[in-house]
């Protein structure tokens, strides 16, 4: 198998090879069969042995980042439960719990569906990045089918993500029209806190998508494109799953 993807002589001696394009873009970790010209990936330092290792590194970084994020939301949710149960004693020694559940605008259901769909399109884009046939086509110089296919689906994700954020905006607007603001009630504190912090995270995801799209357009290195798309999509999935959980909490947990 490795012999079929050994680059021709002329490609192996091209300079400025930051593992982009010139090397067979599918990572087999075989290192080809060249010796002594730096072609054997196993002789290269860690982190520079090919696309697979860069992706795995990015994923692990993302794992720890999302672990921190998880703790952030766990802290908010702990406070949610405590605040929901808390109250005070009035002048007659009655325990008053001032938590009034916030009626969740039903547009959030639509937003949730949009976000779920966006995760599907994102996953299609992510898988398109790893289609070996397309990768080989690009390496042979037959256009950039990888970028092309992924960019379409990623753009769909971006549109759906923006739709979700717009929908959240509408929900805040609707609540404001009913005079439900952040300060109205402990439960509305949490509605706004949770939706806004999640929206901020999703906005970071949108930025990630835009960067990934830019990478698809401008980056010559397939590995770079794979890293950006893969990491962004995993982040997007986790934010989607987190939203489902937060939404269920707001809808049924109040």
């Amino acid at each position: 198998m490795p012999s079929t993807i050994t680059p021709p002589e002329i490609d192996r001696h091209r300079i400025s090879d930051g593992n982009n394009g010139h090397r067979p873009p599918t990572d087999k970790r075989t290192g080809g069969n060249g010796e002594g010209d730096g072609d054997n990936w196993n002789n290269r330092p860690r982190g520079h042995r090919g696309p697979h290792e860069r992706i795995s590194q990015a994923r692990i970084g993302l794992f720890f980042a999302l672990g921190g994020d998880l703790m952030f939301f766990v802290a908010l949710i702990s406070v949610f439960f405590v605040t929901k149960a808390s109250g005070h004693f009035d002048a007659y020694d009655h325990f008053i719990n001032s938590w009034l559940p916030t009626a969740i605008p039903s547009i959030l259901w639509l937003n949730t569906i949009a976000l779920l769909l966006s995760s599907v399109t994102a996953e299609i884009a992510r898988r398109a990045m790893f289609r070996e046939v397309d990768a080989m086509d690009e390496w042979f110089g037959l256009g950039r089918p990888v970028s092309y296919r992924a960019a379409i689906w990623l753009s769909a994700t971006l549109a759906l993500g923006l739709l979700f954020l717009a929908g959240q905006w509408v929900a805040w607007d609707q609540l404001a029209a009913q005079h439900v603001f952040f300060r109205s009630n402990p439960s509305s504190h949490f509605f706004y806190l949770i939706t806004i912090t999640h929206a901020v995270h999703l906005f970071l995801g949108i930025v990630g998508l835009i960067v990934a799209l830019a990478a698809l357009k401008f980056s010559r290195s397939l590995a770079t494109r794979q890293v950006w798309v893969d990491t962004t999509v995993w982040y997007w999935h986790v934010m989607g799953a987190l939203w489902i959980f937060l939404f269920l909490l707001l809808e049924f947990g109040q």
Partner: peptide, 10 residues
Amino acid sequence: AAYRHAIILL
């Protein structure tokens, strides 16, 4: 009880 649950959750 809510505090207890929050402690366990965290």
